[in-house]
Design a protein around this nucleic acid. Structure first.
Lengths: 127, 127
DNA sequence: ACGATAAACAGTAATCATTATCATTATCGA
DNA sequence: TCGATAATGATAATGATTACTGTTTATCGT
C-alpha cells in the first residue's frame, strides 16, 4: 500500500473518462490523452487505469476484445451491440433484487454482479 | 459456411467439456485431451473451441484472465469467487424477467444477457 | 526554499492468450 | 477407391497487457 501521489497524467485520464459515455479502450484513452501529454506512455495509461480501478474511481469492463473503461461508477449495466460492438448504458431498478434471487441458490456469499446484455442497438436495427 | 466434417479431436474436446463442471481454460482442456491425442496442437483446441461456440454447443466465458469454457448450455449464470477464482454454476428462475426489465430502458433489442456474480465461495469463507 | 525519499514517469522489452499460416492428413460422398 | 476439401500439427505472428529500468517529479520535514 504505497502512499498515493498526485499526477497530472492520472488526472487527465480520469477527466477524459468522466467526460465520455462510450466506454473507450486503453488505446483510445491513450491517443486522446496524448493531445494534452504528447509523450505519455501507453504503460502509464495502463498503470493508471489499473490503479483507478482498484481505487473504485472507474470500472473495468471485460468483454470479447480489449477491455473497456467506464468513468461513471453509479450501479448500472451494459448493453453490447453484436453488430457494431457499441457499449451502451442501462440503468434499471431491480439490481438488488437480482442479487437476492441468486443468493437463494448459491452456497457462497454474493457481493454483487455484473450483467452484460446483448442484442442489436437501435442504429444497427435499421439495416 | 464450409461443410462440417467429423473429427475425433473435436469430439474428444466436446466430451471432455460435458464431463466437467469447473469451466476449464483452453490450456487445461489442451493438457487433458492430450492424454487421448498426445500430439494434438493447442491451435486445434482453440480452433475447435471457437467452432463449438459458434455452433452453440458450448459457451465461452470471458472474464479477467484467460477465457473459460462451459459444455453445458442450459441457461444459467456463473458465480466467481474473488479469492480462489473458482467458477460455480447458479441456476435461477428469473432469467427471463431480467431481460424484460432491462428492455424497458433500452432502445435496442435485447436478445439475452450474461451475468457474473462475484463474492466469496463457501470454501474460502472458512478462512 | 532545500534536499531526501519514494512515487510516477517515458521508453522499451517481455509475457500471455489467441489467431493465422501452411504443408500434410483425415473424412466422406460419388 | 478416388478426389475434393475440411481438419490437423507445428510454428510463426499478432494484439493486449504487464514488467523492467533509469530518470523525473511530487511531497514532506527541515
Amino acid at each position: 500500500m504505497p502512499a498515493l501521489k498526485h499526477s497530472r497524467q492520472r488526472e487527465s485520464i480520469k477527466n477524459f473518462l468522466t467526460s465520455r459515455y462510450d466506454h473507450p479502450t486503453a488505446d483510445t484513452i491513450y491517443t486522446n490523452v496524448r493531445q494534452e501529454f504528447p509523450n505519455i506512455s501507453l504503460g502509464t495509461v495502463y498503470r493508471n487505469l489499473a490503479l483507478l480501478t482498484d481505487l473504485g474511481e472507474i470500472i473495468k469492463i471485460t468483454t470479447d476484445g480489449p477491455d473497456r473503461f467506464d468513468g461513471h461508477v453509479e450501479p448500472h449495466s451494459h448493453f453490447i451491440c453484436r453488430k457494431c460492438h457499441a457499449v451502451l448504458d442501462i440503468k434499471m431498478k431491480s439490481e438488488d433484487f437480482i442479487d437476492k434471487e441468486a443468493q437463494k441458490c448459491c452456497s457462497g456469499v454474493i457481493e454483487g454482479h455484473v450483467t452484460q446484455y446483448f442484442g442489436v442497438c437501435s442504429e444497427c436495427i435499421k439495416d
